[in-house]
Structures are given as structure tokens and as C-alpha cells.
């Protein structure tokens, strides 16, 4: 078993942070690689982030409405 991190992606050269809007999954849920599990927003865009691996969502590190920097770890998936 290994752990995979869900990272806040690069969103353009002027964007330094984004807001976690809505988790579509809870801790303990199974997720499939490519499945949209989280909605994030910047002032300009709303987008869904996909699970980077198939497994179980074991940790949510940034709660809804909180802001995370680009590159921050948002969640951990065990596979």
C-alpha cells in the first residue's frame, strides 16, 4: 500500500492560491483515478480536480471554504 497526494495544481502565472469549494467525497470513500472529487475556485475559474489514483480517500487536509496555496497537499489517497 502506498500513499498518493492530491496537490493544488498550477492555475496560471498570477494565481498563487485557490479556494476549496466542495468535496464530492468523504474520508473513507473509494475513489477511482480520474474521478472528479473536489471543486476548487479562483476569482476567475471554477474547476474540478480529479483523483490522482484509485484507492481510498484517507485524509482531507483542506476543508471547504479554506484557501490553499498552489502546490499545497489537499488530500491523501491510499492505494
Amino acid at each position: 500500500m502506498s500513499q498518493v497526494e492530491l496537490i493544488m495544481p498550477e492555475l496560471g502565472n498570477e494565481i498563487t492560491e485557490a479556494q476549496v469549494d466542495l468535496w464530492h467525497k468523504s474520508v473513507g470513500d473509494s475513489v477511482a483515478e480520474g474521478e472528479e472529487i473536489l471543486t476548487i475556485t479562483t476569482p476567475k475559474v471554477t474547476m474540478d480536480l480529479e483523483a490522482p489514483a484509485t484507492g481510498t480517500l484517507t485524509k482531507i487536509l483542506v476543508e471547504e471554504d479554506d484557501i490553499a496555496a498552489i502546490g499545497a497537499v489537499l488530500a491523501i489517497i491510499d492505494r
Binding site: 492560491e17 485557490a18 479556494q19 475556485t41 479562483t42 476569482p43 476567475k44 484557501i67
Partner: peptide, 10 residues
């Protein structure tokens, strides 16, 4: 406030 936390011009 950050533009993510307050109403912006946009």
C-alpha cells in the same frame, strides 16, 4: 481581505 474571501469588482 483576499479576493477569495470578499466581494470583488468582478
Amino acid at each position: 481581505l483576499s479576493p477569495l474571501k470578499a466581494i470583488t469588482l468582478r
